[in-house]
Simulated scan of single mutants.
Amino acid sequence: MQVAEAYFFHDYVCDFWDLTKQMGITDAVIPLTSLMEGPAWGVENLSKVKQMYENEGLRVTVIENMPPSNKIKLGLPGRDEEIEYFKTLIRSMGLLGIPVLCYNFMAEIGWFRTSMNMPTRGGALVSGYSRQAMEALPLTEYGHVSEEQMWDNLKYFLERIVPVAEEAKVKLALHPDDPPVTPLRGISRIIRGAEGLQRAIDLVPSPYSGITFCQGTLATAGEDIPSAIRQFGKQDKIFFVHFRDVAGTSDNFYETFHDDGKTDMLEAMKTYYEVGFNGPVRADHVPTMAGEPNHYPGYEIMGRLFGNGYMIGLMEAAGYKREKSHVQTVK
Protein backbone atom coordinates (compact mmCIF):
# COMPACT_ATOMS: atom_id res chain seq x y z
CA MET A 1 0.00 0.00 0.00
CA GLN A 2 1.39 3.39 -1.01
CA VAL A 3 0.38 6.03 1.55
CA ALA A 4 -0.19 9.27 -0.34
CA GLU A 5 -1.20 12.81 0.53
CA ALA A 6 -3.21 15.28 -1.52
CA TYR A 7 -1.84 18.73 -2.33
CA PHE A 8 -5.05 20.37 -3.58
CA PHE A 9 -4.70 23.44 -1.34
CA HIS A 10 -0.94 23.24 -0.79
CA ASP A 11 0.24 22.75 -4.37
CA TYR A 12 3.37 24.82 -3.78
CA VAL A 13 6.45 24.20 -1.66
CA CYS A 14 5.50 24.90 1.97
CA ASP A 15 5.67 23.44 5.48
CA PHE A 16 2.93 20.94 4.67
CA TRP A 17 5.25 19.22 2.22
CA ASP A 18 7.76 18.75 5.04
CA LEU A 19 5.03 17.51 7.38
CA THR A 20 4.00 14.78 4.97
CA LYS A 21 7.60 13.61 4.58
CA GLN A 22 7.99 13.66 8.36
CA MET A 23 5.04 11.24 8.49
CA GLY A 24 6.90 8.99 6.07
CA ILE A 25 4.64 9.88 3.15
CA THR A 26 6.40 10.42 -0.17
CA ASP A 27 3.61 9.73 -2.68
CA ALA A 28 1.76 12.80 -3.94
CA VAL A 29 -1.81 13.15 -5.21
CA ILE A 30 -1.91 16.38 -7.17
CA PRO A 31 -4.36 18.62 -9.03
CA LEU A 32 -3.75 19.97 -12.52
CA THR A 33 -1.76 23.13 -11.87
CA SER A 34 -0.92 25.52 -14.69
CA LEU A 35 2.55 26.93 -13.97
CA MET A 36 3.20 27.93 -17.55
CA GLU A 37 1.35 29.27 -20.53
CA GLY A 38 -0.72 26.62 -22.23
CA PRO A 39 -3.05 23.90 -20.91
CA ALA A 40 -2.40 22.37 -17.51
CA TRP A 41 -2.84 18.90 -19.03
CA GLY A 42 -0.06 19.34 -21.61
CA VAL A 43 3.15 17.39 -21.17
CA GLU A 44 5.37 20.48 -20.85
CA ASN A 45 3.40 21.92 -17.95
CA LEU A 46 2.83 18.56 -16.29
CA SER A 47 6.54 17.77 -16.53
CA LYS A 48 7.40 20.99 -14.72
CA VAL A 49 4.87 20.27 -11.96
CA LYS A 50 6.14 16.70 -11.53
CA GLN A 51 9.72 17.95 -11.32
CA MET A 52 8.77 20.45 -8.63
CA TYR A 53 7.49 17.60 -6.45
CA GLU A 54 10.45 15.37 -7.21
CA ASN A 55 12.85 18.14 -6.22
CA GLU A 56 11.25 17.96 -2.76
CA GLY A 57 11.45 14.18 -2.54
CA LEU A 58 7.82 13.51 -3.48
CA ARG A 59 6.66 11.07 -6.16
CA VAL A 60 3.57 12.02 -8.17
CA THR A 61 1.40 8.88 -8.14
CA VAL A 62 -2.12 10.17 -8.84
CA ILE A 63 -3.69 13.12 -10.62
CA GLU A 64 -7.03 13.77 -8.98
CA ASN A 65 -8.88 16.25 -11.08
CA MET A 66 -9.68 16.68 -14.72
CA PRO A 67 -9.68 18.99 -17.69
CA PRO A 68 -13.06 20.61 -18.49
CA SER A 69 -15.62 17.80 -18.70
CA ASN A 70 -19.15 19.11 -18.20
CA LYS A 71 -19.99 18.88 -21.91
CA ILE A 72 -18.79 15.28 -21.90
CA LYS A 73 -20.99 14.39 -18.95
CA LEU A 74 -24.07 16.16 -20.31
CA GLY A 75 -23.56 15.12 -23.94
CA LEU A 76 -23.40 18.73 -25.15
CA PRO A 77 -21.83 20.15 -28.32
CA GLY A 78 -18.12 20.51 -27.69
CA ARG A 79 -17.73 17.23 -25.82
CA ASP A 80 -15.36 15.85 -28.45
CA GLU A 81 -13.02 18.78 -27.85
CA GLU A 82 -13.11 18.05 -24.11
CA ILE A 83 -12.37 14.40 -24.82
CA GLU A 84 -9.26 15.52 -26.72
CA TYR A 85 -8.14 17.35 -23.56
CA PHE A 86 -8.44 14.06 -21.67
CA LYS A 87 -6.47 12.22 -24.33
CA THR A 88 -3.70 14.79 -24.10
CA LEU A 89 -3.62 14.47 -20.31
CA ILE A 90 -3.49 10.68 -20.39
CA ARG A 91 -0.73 10.64 -22.99
CA SER A 92 1.21 13.21 -20.96
CA MET A 93 0.84 11.07 -17.83
CA GLY A 94 2.03 8.02 -19.72
CA LEU A 95 5.13 9.81 -20.99
CA LEU A 96 5.94 11.03 -17.48
CA GLY A 97 5.21 7.75 -15.69
CA ILE A 98 2.27 9.04 -13.61
CA PRO A 99 0.20 5.86 -13.22
CA VAL A 100 -3.31 6.81 -11.99
CA LEU A 101 -5.97 9.34 -13.05
CA CYS A 102 -8.84 9.74 -10.58
CA TYR A 103 -11.90 11.05 -12.44
CA ASN A 104 -15.63 11.29 -11.84
CA PHE A 105 -18.83 11.48 -13.85
CA MET A 106 -20.77 13.99 -11.74
CA ALA A 107 -22.28 16.52 -14.16
CA GLU A 108 -22.49 20.24 -13.26
CA ILE A 109 -22.47 19.53 -9.49
CA GLY A 110 -19.43 17.71 -8.18
CA TRP A 111 -18.65 16.77 -4.58
CA PHE A 112 -21.42 18.50 -2.65
CA ARG A 113 -22.45 19.17 0.94
CA THR A 114 -25.22 21.31 2.44
CA SER A 115 -23.05 22.23 5.45
CA MET A 116 -19.31 22.65 5.85
CA ASN A 117 -19.15 23.41 9.58
CA MET A 118 -21.10 20.81 11.53
CA PRO A 119 -19.70 20.25 15.05
CA THR A 120 -18.54 16.75 15.90
CA ARG A 121 -16.32 15.20 18.60
CA GLY A 122 -14.79 17.81 20.85
CA GLY A 123 -16.18 20.65 18.74
CA ALA A 124 -14.22 19.75 15.60
CA LEU A 125 -15.94 20.79 12.37
CA VAL A 126 -16.99 18.48 9.53
CA SER A 127 -19.13 18.59 6.42
CA GLY A 128 -22.61 17.14 6.17
CA TYR A 129 -25.54 16.61 3.83
CA SER A 130 -29.29 17.03 4.29
CA ARG A 131 -31.73 15.94 1.61
CA GLN A 132 -34.29 18.43 2.90
CA ALA A 133 -31.84 21.31 2.48
CA MET A 134 -30.85 20.06 -0.96
CA GLU A 135 -34.43 19.76 -2.20
CA ALA A 136 -34.99 23.45 -1.46
CA LEU A 137 -32.51 24.35 -4.23
CA PRO A 138 -33.72 24.99 -7.81
CA LEU A 139 -32.95 23.02 -10.96
CA THR A 140 -29.76 23.88 -12.79
CA GLU A 141 -29.92 25.56 -16.20
CA TYR A 142 -29.86 22.08 -17.77
CA GLY A 143 -33.22 21.07 -16.32
CA HIS A 144 -33.85 17.36 -15.97
CA VAL A 145 -31.14 14.97 -17.15
CA SER A 146 -32.11 11.30 -17.08
CA GLU A 147 -30.05 8.34 -15.93
CA GLU A 148 -30.29 6.87 -19.43
CA GLN A 149 -28.70 10.02 -20.87
CA MET A 150 -25.91 9.88 -18.31
CA TRP A 151 -25.15 6.22 -19.05
CA ASP A 152 -25.09 6.93 -22.79
CA ASN A 153 -22.71 9.83 -22.23
CA LEU A 154 -20.41 7.76 -20.02
CA LYS A 155 -20.22 4.98 -22.59
CA TYR A 156 -19.47 7.49 -25.36
CA PHE A 157 -16.63 8.88 -23.25
CA LEU A 158 -15.14 5.53 -22.23
CA GLU A 159 -15.23 4.13 -25.76
CA ARG A 160 -12.94 6.98 -26.83
CA ILE A 161 -10.73 7.30 -23.78
CA VAL A 162 -10.04 3.72 -22.64
CA PRO A 163 -7.97 2.79 -25.74
CA VAL A 164 -5.77 5.83 -25.10
CA ALA A 165 -5.32 4.78 -21.46
CA GLU A 166 -4.33 1.29 -22.59
CA GLU A 167 -1.77 2.71 -25.00
CA ALA A 168 -0.34 5.07 -22.37
CA LYS A 169 -0.58 2.47 -19.56
CA VAL A 170 -2.45 4.90 -17.33
CA LYS A 171 -5.12 3.55 -14.98
CA LEU A 172 -8.52 5.30 -15.04
CA ALA A 173 -9.94 5.29 -11.49
CA LEU A 174 -13.63 6.25 -11.47
CA HIS A 175 -14.80 7.93 -8.26
CA PRO A 176 -18.40 7.25 -7.15
CA ASP A 177 -20.90 10.11 -7.00
CA ASP A 178 -20.72 12.01 -3.74
CA PRO A 179 -23.26 12.27 -2.24
CA PRO A 180 -24.64 8.98 -3.64
CA VAL A 181 -28.16 10.30 -4.27
CA THR A 182 -30.17 11.11 -7.38
CA PRO A 183 -31.11 13.49 -8.81
CA LEU A 184 -29.30 16.60 -7.63
CA ARG A 185 -31.08 19.74 -8.82
CA GLY A 186 -32.55 17.74 -11.69
CA ILE A 187 -29.35 16.04 -12.86
CA SER A 188 -29.22 12.26 -12.42
CA ARG A 189 -26.34 10.63 -10.61
CA ILE A 190 -25.55 7.12 -11.84
CA ILE A 191 -22.43 6.00 -9.93
CA ARG A 192 -24.10 5.77 -6.53
CA GLY A 193 -22.71 2.51 -5.19
CA ALA A 194 -21.05 -0.80 -6.01
CA GLU A 195 -23.66 -1.70 -8.66
CA GLY A 196 -23.08 1.54 -10.57
CA LEU A 197 -19.31 1.24 -10.35
CA GLN A 198 -19.46 -2.32 -11.67
CA ARG A 199 -21.73 -1.37 -14.54
CA ALA A 200 -19.46 1.54 -15.44
CA ILE A 201 -16.26 -0.49 -15.66
CA ASP A 202 -18.09 -3.22 -17.58
CA LEU A 203 -19.17 -0.75 -20.30
CA VAL A 204 -15.73 -0.85 -21.93
CA PRO A 205 -13.80 -3.65 -20.21
CA SER A 206 -10.08 -3.05 -19.86
CA PRO A 207 -7.27 -3.71 -17.36
CA TYR A 208 -6.85 0.07 -17.32
CA SER A 209 -10.46 0.93 -16.40
CA GLY A 210 -11.21 0.60 -12.70
CA ILE A 211 -12.28 2.57 -9.66
CA THR A 212 -11.33 4.90 -6.87
CA PHE A 213 -12.65 3.03 -3.84
CA CYS A 214 -14.04 5.91 -1.80
CA GLN A 215 -14.97 4.29 1.50
CA GLY A 216 -16.96 7.25 2.75
CA THR A 217 -19.16 7.49 -0.32
CA LEU A 218 -19.81 3.75 -0.42
CA ALA A 219 -20.51 3.65 3.32
CA THR A 220 -22.97 6.52 2.85
CA ALA A 221 -24.64 4.46 0.12
CA GLY A 222 -25.13 1.63 2.61
CA GLU A 223 -22.56 -0.75 1.14
CA ASP A 224 -20.83 -3.33 3.30
CA ILE A 225 -17.27 -2.06 2.93
CA PRO A 226 -15.32 -5.34 3.32
CA SER A 227 -17.66 -7.07 0.84
CA ALA A 228 -17.24 -4.25 -1.69
CA ILE A 229 -13.45 -4.34 -1.27
CA ARG A 230 -13.53 -8.06 -2.05
CA GLN A 231 -15.82 -7.53 -5.06
CA PHE A 232 -13.52 -5.07 -6.76
CA GLY A 233 -10.22 -6.21 -5.28
CA LYS A 234 -10.61 -9.72 -6.65
CA GLN A 235 -11.05 -8.19 -10.11
CA ASP A 236 -7.91 -6.01 -9.66
CA LYS A 237 -10.13 -2.98 -10.21
CA ILE A 238 -9.21 -0.93 -7.13
CA PHE A 239 -6.65 1.56 -8.44
CA PHE A 240 -6.83 4.16 -5.66
CA VAL A 241 -8.40 4.34 -2.19
CA HIS A 242 -9.97 7.24 -0.28
CA PHE A 243 -9.84 6.14 3.35
CA ARG A 244 -12.55 7.96 5.32
CA ASP A 245 -15.81 7.38 7.15
CA VAL A 246 -19.25 8.86 7.83
CA ALA A 247 -22.26 8.60 10.14
CA GLY A 248 -25.86 8.52 8.91
CA THR A 249 -27.52 7.58 5.65
CA SER A 250 -27.49 8.97 2.13
CA ASP A 251 -30.42 11.24 3.01
CA ASN A 252 -28.70 12.75 6.04
CA PHE A 253 -25.06 12.15 6.89
CA TYR A 254 -21.95 13.84 8.18
CA GLU A 255 -18.23 13.16 8.01
CA THR A 256 -16.45 11.75 11.05
CA PHE A 257 -13.01 11.32 12.48
CA HIS A 258 -11.50 8.21 10.93
CA ASP A 259 -12.02 6.25 14.17
CA ASP A 260 -15.57 7.47 14.87
CA GLY A 261 -17.79 6.46 11.94
CA LYS A 262 -19.98 3.51 10.96
CA THR A 263 -17.27 1.39 9.31
CA ASP A 264 -15.02 -1.16 11.01
CA MET A 265 -11.85 0.48 9.70
CA LEU A 266 -9.50 -2.25 10.91
CA GLU A 267 -11.62 -4.88 9.16
CA ALA A 268 -11.54 -2.74 6.01
CA MET A 269 -7.75 -2.50 6.14
CA LYS A 270 -7.43 -6.23 6.73
CA THR A 271 -9.59 -6.81 3.66
CA TYR A 272 -7.37 -4.61 1.47
CA TYR A 273 -4.47 -6.75 2.65
CA GLU A 274 -6.45 -9.95 2.02
CA VAL A 275 -7.16 -9.05 -1.63
CA GLY A 276 -3.56 -7.93 -2.21
CA PHE A 277 -4.21 -4.24 -2.79
CA ASN A 278 -0.89 -2.40 -3.08
CA GLY A 279 -1.87 0.85 -4.77
CA PRO A 280 -2.10 4.43 -3.48
CA VAL A 281 -4.32 5.33 -0.53
CA ARG A 282 -4.93 8.64 1.19
CA ALA A 283 -6.78 9.75 4.31
CA ASP A 284 -9.69 11.80 2.98
CA HIS A 285 -12.11 14.47 4.30
CA VAL A 286 -10.69 15.19 7.74
CA PRO A 287 -12.24 17.28 10.53
CA THR A 288 -11.11 20.84 11.14
CA MET A 289 -9.60 20.81 14.63
CA ALA A 290 -9.09 23.37 17.41
CA GLY A 291 -7.35 26.54 16.35
CA GLU A 292 -7.76 25.96 12.61
CA PRO A 293 -9.67 28.46 10.44
CA ASN A 294 -11.74 25.98 8.35
CA HIS A 295 -10.65 27.75 5.18
CA TYR A 296 -10.26 24.33 3.53
CA PRO A 297 -13.06 22.15 4.95
CA GLY A 298 -12.03 18.51 4.89
CA TYR A 299 -8.40 19.39 4.22
CA GLU A 300 -7.04 21.36 7.16
CA ILE A 301 -3.70 20.11 8.41
CA MET A 302 -4.24 18.81 11.95
CA GLY A 303 -7.01 16.43 10.93
CA ARG A 304 -4.79 15.10 8.18
CA LEU A 305 -2.05 14.38 10.71
CA PHE A 306 -4.59 12.48 12.82
CA GLY A 307 -6.08 10.63 9.86
CA ASN A 308 -2.74 9.57 8.41
CA GLY A 309 -1.42 8.40 11.77
CA TYR A 310 -4.54 6.34 12.40
CA MET A 311 -4.49 4.88 8.90
CA ILE A 312 -0.79 3.97 9.05
CA GLY A 313 -1.34 2.25 12.40
CA LEU A 314 -4.19 0.19 10.91
CA MET A 315 -1.98 -0.77 7.98
CA GLU A 316 0.63 -2.19 10.31
CA ALA A 317 -2.04 -4.02 12.34
CA ALA A 318 -3.43 -5.54 9.13
CA GLY A 319 -0.04 -6.88 8.03
CA TYR A 320 1.28 -4.20 5.69
CA LYS A 321 4.98 -3.48 6.00
CA ARG A 322 6.30 0.04 5.40
CA GLU A 323 9.87 0.93 4.59
CA LYS A 324 11.39 2.82 7.51
CA SER A 325 13.83 5.68 7.23
CA HIS A 326 17.23 5.20 8.83
CA VAL A 327 18.56 8.35 10.42
CA GLN A 328 21.96 8.39 12.06
CA THR A 329 21.63 8.58 15.85
CA VAL A 330 22.92 11.80 17.31
CA LYS A 331 25.53 11.06 19.97
Rank of each mutant, 00 (worst) to 15 (best):
G279W: 09
G279C: 08
T212G: 08
D178I: 05
T256P: 04
A268K: 15
E300P: 10
H175G: 14
L266H: 12
F157W: 10
E159L: 12
A283P: 11
P99E: 03
V246F: 15
P99W: 05
I238S: 07
N153Q: 09
T20W: 10
N45C: 08
S92T: 12
V43F: 03
S227E: 15
P287E: 11
R59E: 11
D18G: 01
S209D: 01
Y310C: 13
V170Q: 14
Q328T: 00
I30M: 12
D260I: 02
T182M: 01
G319K: 04
E37Q: 13
R230K: 07
R244Q: 13
E316Q: 12
Q235Y: 05
K155L: 15
F232V: 06
S130D: 09
V204E: 09
T88N: 12
V204I: 13
E267G: 13
G248N: 13
L184C: 02
Y103N: 08
F8K: 06
V13W: 00
L174G: 04
D251G: 12
G186D: 05
K71N: 10
I83D: 10
I83N: 09
I161M: 11
V181F: 00
F253I: 01
E292Q: 04
I190C: 05
R192I: 07
T329F: 08
M1C: 05
D260S: 11
S250D: 08
T220G: 13
I201S: 11
Y299V: 02
G303H: 06
M66I: 03
P179A: 04
Y85P: 03
R192K: 07
D152S: 10
I161N: 09
L19R: 15
I229W: 02
G186S: 04
V13Y: 00
N308F: 04
A4H: 09
K48L: 11
V181W: 00
C14K: 01
R79T: 02
K234P: 04
Q235I: 04
T88P: 07
V162A: 06
S115F: 09
D260G: 10
P226G: 05
R59P: 07
F157G: 10
Y156D: 15
L89A: 10
I211N: 12
G233M: 12
T249A: 11
A200K: 00
Q235C: 02
I190L: 08
V327W: 05
G78C: 10
G222A: 14
H242G: 07
G313I: 02
